[in-house]
Computed example of a mutant assay.
Amino acid sequence: MEIVNFLVENGPWSWIVAGLVLLALELVLPGGFLLWMGIAGILTGIITLFQPLTWPLQWLIFGVLSLVSIYAWVRLTRGRATQTDRPLLNQRTEHFMGREVVLDQPIVDGFGRLTMGDTKWRVSGPDLPAGQRVRIIDAEGAVLRVEPV
């Protein structure tokens, strides 16, 4: 019961401390939403410092500020494409689209092999003899789809 009395007596500071705790938790559990809830808690504390409010109204302000700020953050960040100088990083097969290479092994029953750089790749396509020049047209996982040139 003493905790409740302490929170009632120090209402605005309780919100500010709770907001700071949420901000600290954001450092441990990153994800973004605790940041905005922490800011909403601090703002609720600042509002109640200057304008005393009942507890239900304080919780309503905290909830509304949290939801609005999280919604705005999601809308602004989720639709934005990440700018990079290497857009195909970790997408090795995307580099090969349209490249023409020579088959090392014949394509038999739809599958064969070819070498690009220091890597042997499994390829799929129509049956073709070894030495045939092919163009890479698609990739399904680590299997390159080819067509004869």
Rank of each mutant, 00 (worst) to 15 (best):
E147H: 05
T115E: 08
G131D: 10
I136W: 03
F111Q: 08
D118T: 02
P129F: 05
S124G: 15
D109I: 01
G125C: 03
R122C: 00
L114I: 03
G125W: 03
A139S: 15
V134R: 08
T115K: 12
V146F: 06
L114F: 06
P126W: 02
K120Q: 12
S124M: 13
M116I: 15
L144Y: 11
K120C: 00
W121F: 08
V134H: 15
D138K: 12
K120G: 05
G110T: 13
G131P: 10
R113Q: 15
A130S: 11
E140Y: 09
Q132C: 08
T119K: 04
E147K: 11
R135K: 14
V134Y: 09
G117M: 03
P126L: 08
I136Y: 08
V146A: 13
D118E: 14
I136L: 10
L144C: 09
R133T: 12
R145T: 14
I136R: 01
G141Y: 14
I137H: 07
T119W: 03
T119Q: 02
E147R: 11
D138H: 13
L114G: 05
T119F: 00
V134N: 07
V143L: 10
R122M: 09
R133N: 14
G141S: 11
T119S: 06
M116K: 00
P126K: 14
V123P: 04
D138F: 14
R113M: 10
A130M: 07
W121K: 04
W121L: 00
R145L: 15
R145H: 15
D127I: 12
G112F: 10
P126E: 15
Q132R: 15
D138E: 13
S124N: 13
I136S: 00
L144W: 11
L114T: 12
D109C: 00
I136V: 04
A142W: 01
S124Y: 04
E147D: 13
R122D: 03
D109F: 00
W121V: 01
G131W: 10
L114K: 06
P126I: 06
F111A: 07
L114Q: 01
D109E: 13
W121D: 01
V134S: 08
R145Y: 04
F111W: 02
R133S: 14
Q132D: 03
G125I: 07
K120T: 12
T115L: 05
R133G: 01
F111K: 12
F111E: 09
R133I: 07
G112V: 06
A139T: 11
G112D: 05
A130Q: 07
V134M: 11
G110F: 08
G117S: 10
V123M: 06
V146R: 04
M116P: 00
G112T: 05
G131E: 10
A142P: 02
G112W: 02
G112S: 01
R133E: 12
T115R: 14
S124V: 03
V146D: 04
A142I: 11
D109Y: 01
A130I: 10
A139G: 01
D138L: 03
V123H: 06
L144I: 08
G110N: 05
W121M: 02
P129K: 11
V123K: 10
A130C: 01
V134Q: 12
A139Y: 07
D118W: 01
W121G: 00
P129V: 04
P129M: 02
D127P: 14
Q132F: 05
A130T: 05
A130P: 07
S124F: 03
D127L: 12
